[in-house]
Write a protein that binds this DNA or RNA. Structure first.
Lengths: 340, 340
DNA sequence: TTGAAAGCGCTAACAT
DNA sequence: ATGTTAGCGCTTTCAA
C-alpha cells in the first residue's frame, strides 16, 4: 500500500498498481467500452487490494451526470412518507438512480433551503411533496432544467408533472358516504396545521359536500403535538362532552381515529350505530384494532412508484412524452365503523 | 438573461453579469475574505437576478470538502429510526453539515452497497446503525479516514466510536424486574429477524438473566411481515392456546405488545395480575392505549444527538479527543402491565 | 480589495 | 483494446 494514509486513493493509484492507464481503469470500474478480460482482472484486483472507492464528485463534474434524485417531503415521522419512499426506491433500484431525502417539517422556508441545497448537487430529478411552494422555490425548480414531479396532491397546477390524489374529492366522497349512511350530526377532528394543505383541502371538500346535502359541521377540534392516539382520545371526550348528540366523527388521520375508537369502545358506545367513525390514510396499523376503522386509502406506495417512473423515463430519454398529471383514485373502506 | 436555457448557470455567468471576476464572485457567495460592500451588492443582485445556484460538485472537488454526513440505517418504517434522525438533525442544523440517509433493509450486502455509494461522495463523517458489518464494510470505513460513529448498540467493539445502549443489559434488566414481580411462566414473542442483532442481544440477555434466576422461557413465537399490531394479537392467541398457564409475555417491540394488550383486554384477562406484559422502545403511540404498557426506553433521540455531536466536533477539529464509547442507560417504565 | 493561474479527480472525445 | 488530451466549475494560492 503506497497510500500515505492521509490522502484518499485516486484512480492514479490504481493505475500505477495495475500498470494500466487511468482511462482504462476508469473504463473497467464503470464497465464501459471494450476492455480485455486480462486487463479487467488486473485492474479489479488492484482496486480491491488497495480498497479504492471512486470519487463520484470528480466523476460527476467530468461527466456532467449525477445519478441522484432529490426527494423532498415534510416529515419522516408520519408513516405516509416512508411508504411513499418505498414506492420510489422500488422503482429506482431497477435503475442506477438513487433517492436522496430532504425533510422540510412543513415549513415553506425550510423547503426552500433544502431545495437549494439539493439543487446545488445537480440531481437528475426532483420529487417534491405538495403543490404549494414559495415563489423562489418554484423559480428554482423551473430554472433547474430537470424533471420535477410534485406528489400527493393534484388539486392545483404542477410546475412540470404531478402524481397524487384529489384531497378535495376525497373529502367530498367521505362526506357523501357518511350522509348516505344517514348520519347527520357530524364532528370534525384534525391536526392544527395551517401548512398541511392536503388536510385543509380534504376538510374543504368535506364541508362543501355536506353543505350541498344541507348539513353543517356540528363541531370541530384541532390538536398539535403529542401522541396522536392519546390526542384522539382526549379530543373525542372533549367534543362529546360539548356536543353529546353527535352521531359521526370524521378525523384527519387514522391514528387519532384509532384513539377515538378505543375511547368510545371503553365507554360502551355502540359503533357504528350510535356513533360512526372515519379516518384517512389506510395505515396498516389499523388491522390490529378491535374494530376495523373506516378510512380512505391515499395510494401512498403507488404515488411513489409513478413519480419515480416519470423521473426514470425522463432521465433515460429527455424528450420522452411522460404524463403531466396522474390522478389516482383513493378507495373508501367502510370497515366496521361506518354504516353502509 | 443570457442563459441559453439548456446550460445551467455558472460562476462565469454571474461574473459577466456583474462585471466582477469569478474569484470575487466566489468570495461573495461564500462570505469569504474581504470584499467591498459595493462589489458584494453588485454580485448578489446579479446572482439573484439570474437565479444562480452554485454547483457544489465543482466546489467540493476544488475545496476537497463535502459538508455531508452519511447516516446509514436499516429502515425508515420502524419509528425508532426517524427519531434517531431527529436527534441527528437537531445537532447538525447548528452546523453547516447535512445528513444524507441510506437504508439497508437489515441486509448486510445492501449495507455494503449503500456504504460504498455514500463513501464515493466523500462525506465528512458516517453514522451507521449497529456494530455488525461485512468485512468489506469495515474495511471501507476504516480506510475512509473520516469519523465513524456506530449507533444503537454498545455490545461489541467499535471501528471508531459508538453511542448506544447495551441491549443485553436491557434484556437482563427486564428479566430481573419480571422475576422480582413474581412472574414465573414467561413467554417471548418477537420478530423473525436473525439479522436484527439488537433484538437478538436483548433476547440473549433476557434468557440469561432468567436462567440465573432458575427460570426457563416457557414458550416463544416469532413473526415477520404484516401489521405488527395484528400480529401481536394473533401470536398471543396462538401462544395462550398452546400454553394457557403463562403469566407473563415479553415482546421484542411495543407494537406487538400493544396488539397483545388489546386482545387480552377484550378477553377479560386481568392485567397485570393474571398476565403481565412488557415491550421495548417506549414509542409515543403507547400513551393512547387503554393501559400503559411496561417498556424500556431506547434513548433514540439522545443517541442521534450524541453521535452527531461527535461527528461535528471531529469535523471542526480533526485532532479533538472525542469519546470512543457512550453507553446510555435505558429506563424501565412499569406502566400498568407489570406488577411492582 | 481584487485578479490570474493552477489544479481538484475524473470522463468525453479523439487518437492509435 | 488502450492511451492521450482537454476540460467539467469551482477554490486554493499567489501576485498585484
Amino acid at each position: 500500500m503506497a497510500n500515505d494514509d492521509t490522502r484518499p486513493l485516486t484512480l492514479r493509484d490504481v493505475s500505477e498498481a495495475s500498470g494500466v492507464s487511468e482511462m482504462t481503469v476508469s473504463r473497467v470500474l464503470r464497465n464501459r467500452g471494450d476492455v480485455s478480460d486480462a486487463t479487467r482482472e488486473r485492474v479489479l484486483s488492484a482496486a480491491k487490494a488497495l480498497g479504492y472507492v471512486p470519487n463520484k464528485i470528480a466523476g460527476a463534474l467530468a461527466s456532467q451526470r449525477v445519478n441522484l434524485v432529490a426527494v423532498i417531503i415534510p416529515s419522516l415521522r408520519n408513516m405516509v412518507f416512508p411508504e411513499v419512499m418505498s414506492g420510489i426506491s422500488s422503482v429506482l433500484e431497477e435503475t442506477d438512480l438513487q433517492p436522496v431525502v430532504g425533510v422540510t417539517d412543513y415549513l415553506p422556508e425550510k423547503e426552500e433551503r433544502v431545495l437549494y441545497e439539493m439543487l446545488s448537487w445537480r440531481p437528475s430529478g426532483v420529487i417534491i411533496a405538495g403543490l404549494e411552494h414559495t415563489d423562489a422555490s418554484r423559480a428554482m425548480l423551473k430554472a433547474s432544467g430537470i424533471p420535477v414531479v410534485e406528489i400527493m396532491d393534484v388539486d392545483g397546477t404542477p410546475i412540470d408533472a404531478m402524481v397524487g390524489i384529489s384531497h378535495r374529492r376525497a373529502g367530498r366522497k367521505m362526506a357523501q358516504a357518511i350522509m348516505k349512511a344517514g348520519y347527520e350530526r357530524i364532528g370534525f377532528l384534525g391536526t392544527k396545521m395551517p401548512l398541511d394543505h392536503r388536510a385543509r383541502k380534504r376538510f374543504e371538500g368535506f364541508t362543501e359536500a355536506l353543505a350541498k346535502g344541507g348539513i353543517e359541521i356540528a363541531d370541530q377540534e384541532f390538536y398539535s403535538g403529542g401522541s396522536a392516539l392519546a390526542k384522539g382520545r382526549e379530543m373525542t371526550e372533549t367534543m362529546l362532552e360539548r356536543e353529546p348528540d353527535l352521531d359521526f366523527l370524521y378525523f384527519s388521520n387514522d391514528m387519532i381515529a384509532a384513539g377515538a375508537l378505543l375511547a368510545l369502545l371503553e365507554k360502551g358506545v355502540e359503533i357504528p350505530e350510535q356513533i360512526g367513525l372515519a379516518g384517512f390514510n389506510g395505515v396498516e396499523l389499523l388491522d390490529g384494532l378491535p374494530r376495523k376503522l373506516a378510512t380512505m386509502d391515499a395510494c401512498r406506495t403507488e404515488i411513489g412508484v409513478k413519480a419515480a417512473e416519470i423521473i426514470a423515463e425522463r432521465v433515460n430519454n429527455p424528450d420522452a412524452e411522460t404524463p403531466k398529471v396522474i390522478e389516482l383514485t383513493p378507495k373508501i373502506s367502510y370497515g366496521d365503523t361506518l354504516r353502509r
